[in-house]
Nucleic acid binder design. Structure first.
Length: 236
DNA sequence: GACCAGGCACATC
DNA sequence: GATGTGCATGGT
């Protein structure tokens, strides 16, 4: 493994020994993960949980129901997640893109199952799935990667603001590095391992939420020994 | 009351 | 291609 890869793995082990295995999106269906990935855009997960609970209570956690439901009604259900009008449209866009062609079960996805390409929407290879998701208005790179990794179980690294802040403060990326270059740094220096990518992203979120906050000095951070530079922040 | 949260699209220059 | 802005609730 490259020296960058070794450094990244040291980061990972330090964060994981502090926070423990995160097991993000446990026990949720691929559809719930897709919906959660859209609802959590620039939004705290606690607010997303309220919106998901509303959808469950309204028995609206199905592609069929979401396809039929008028956008204003959907917006009222997801209100706690914020940006409810725009997110209702984004959910409708997603449903319109996948439901007519793939049906209620997205073509028969079983999370993480290795199947022939084209067997179902989420069964497609990671790069193809990512491209198809990015073609949907309202699904950007982070949302697409979250769906590819957490719903489809394909190996793609999810980059977010926390990832950039942590890596930026450790000078592993430069402020001008964009999403794809940060993603490439991680993917080209780490072993292709879905479980690693899954938990690594979650660990970045944990350390970002807990210690590596805007303008914080990061005291007590599990990565403190690796040398934070709190004067430098990534602008992603 | 300000700031932040598991972004994205669009307008403008 | 880079930068700015609207979208909106709920916790700290």
């Amino acid at each position: 493994m490259s020296s960058t890869g070794e450094t990244l793995m040291e980061f990972y082990r330090a964060m994981r020994s502090r926070f423990g295995h995160q097991a993000w999106w446990p026990g949720q269906t691929p559809l719930e993960i897709c919906i959660g990935a859209i609802l959590t855009q620039n939004t705290a997960w606690t607010n997303v949980e309220k919106a998901l609970a509303n959808l469950q209570a309204a028995e609206a956690m199905s592609l069929h129901r979401l396809h039929e439901m008028p956008a204003p009604q959907l917006a009222s259900l997801i209100r706690p997640a914020g940006y409810f009008n725009i997110k209702a449209k984004r959910l409708k866009n997603f449903v319109a893109a996948v439901y007519p062609r793939w049906g209620e079960n997205l073509g028969g996805i079983v999370k993480g199952r290795q199947v022939a390409q084209g067997d179902g929407f989420l069964d497609r290879d990671g790069a193809t799935l990512r491209e198809e998701l990015l073609a949907i208005n309202g699904i950007g790179r982070e949302t697409a990667d979250s769906i590819v990794l957490y719903a489809a179980g394909r190996c793609t690294f999810v980059v977010d603001a926390y990832t950039c802040r942590v890596l930026g403060r450790h000078r592993l990326i430069a402020p001008e590095d964009d999403y794809e270059s940060v993603k490439d740094l991680l993917e080209s220096n780490l072993p292709d391992d879905v479980e690693l990518f899954n938990d690594f992203h979650a660990q970045f979120v944990m350390v970002g939420k807990t210690f590596c906050r805007p303008r914080s000095r990061c005291e007590g951070c599990p990565l403190e020994g690796f040398g934070h530079d709190v004067e430098e922040t990534c602008n992603l």
